[in-house]
């Protein structure tokens, strides 16, 4: 299926090799005053356009921390990080907001939909922040919701939806600005295995259509459906293997 593009990013892979994520010696230290937690201790990671990467690892190993850095929700303590060929270091808050708005689509374990507005409005929201015209917003929100199988639930509030449906709204929302990369932190963690499987199938479809995805998961069965598995332990990458197709 063809995704209508709002904005074409002609600069994907500006460093010539098509890397959307390029991390070099990334560290992250949480300084809570009394204790300093070294959550990431030197991550080198490159993700090319069109890759589907699963990130696995035990609890507390730093997976979410890494995802937050990739999604520009947080900034690294040290190291070099380029997103779609642009250095993220030194961007101000509004510039980071724009990067989050245009370059990444974030999917959370607990969905994080705005509870008081409808599924449709939730999908519309990033486009609102991105300055998309009203007509285009409507068209695209409808298309995306239909695409994730919620064409008949558009006016429902999140509380009126099941967990799997909520996560599908969140995926539609993440795709709204046609991002360079889709990030999902344990997207199936709160779902039963059937809905979890649906979500994974959706991801796989997106990948097959040329999308770039990074997904954190505890479920090795799901991880094995990705193209590449990266394992993290104690803030370091300990394994990085391609799955047989």
């Amino acid at each position: 299926m063809n995704w209508p593009l709002i904005r074409r990013n002609g600069r994907n892979g500006a460093n010539g090799n098509g890397a959307i994520i390029h991390m070099d010696g990334i560290t992250k230290v949480y300084d809570t005053g009394k204790v300093k937690v070294e959550a990431l201790r030197g991550i080198d990671l490159s993700v090319q356009k069109g890759e589907f990467v699963a990130i696995v690892g035990p609890s507390g190993s730093g997976k979410s921390t890494l995802m937050n850095l990739i999604g520009c929700l947080d900034t690294p303590t040290g190291g070099q990080f380029d997103l779609a060929g642009e250095a993220v270091a030194g961007l101000d808050r509004d510039q980071l907001a724009d990067v989050r708005n245009r370059r990444v689509g974030f999917i959370f374990q607990n969905f994080n939909l705005l509870p008081q507005i409808s599924a449709f409005e939730n999908v519309e929201m990033p486009m609102l922040f991105g300055g998309v015209s009203k007509r285009e917003r409507r068209e695209r929100a409808c298309e995306l919701l239909e695409r994730v199988g919620l064409g008949n639930r558009m006016d429902h509030k999140p509380t009126e939806l099941s967990g799997g449906q909520m996560q599908r709204v969140a995926i539609a929302r993440a795709l709204a600005m046609n991002p360079d990369i889709l990030l999902a932190d344990e997207p199936t963690g709160n779902l039963d295995s059937a809905s979890g499987g649906d979500i994974m199938t959706l991801f796989k479809n997106l990948w097959e259509q040329g999308g770039t995805l990074v997904v954190v998961t505890h479920d090795m069965a799901l991880a094995n459906r990705a193209g590449r598995v990266v394992e993290i332990r104690d803030g370091l990458i300990v394994r990085d293997t391609a799955n047989a197709a």
Binding site: A97, N112, F129, R173
Partner: peptide
């Protein structure tokens, strides 16, 4: 706080 955080994650600038 949480809703504001969500809006920020979706790319809301400060003025929003």
């Amino acid at each position: 706080t949480r809703e504001i955080g969500i809006q920020m994650a979706m790319g809301a600038r400060r003025s929003w």
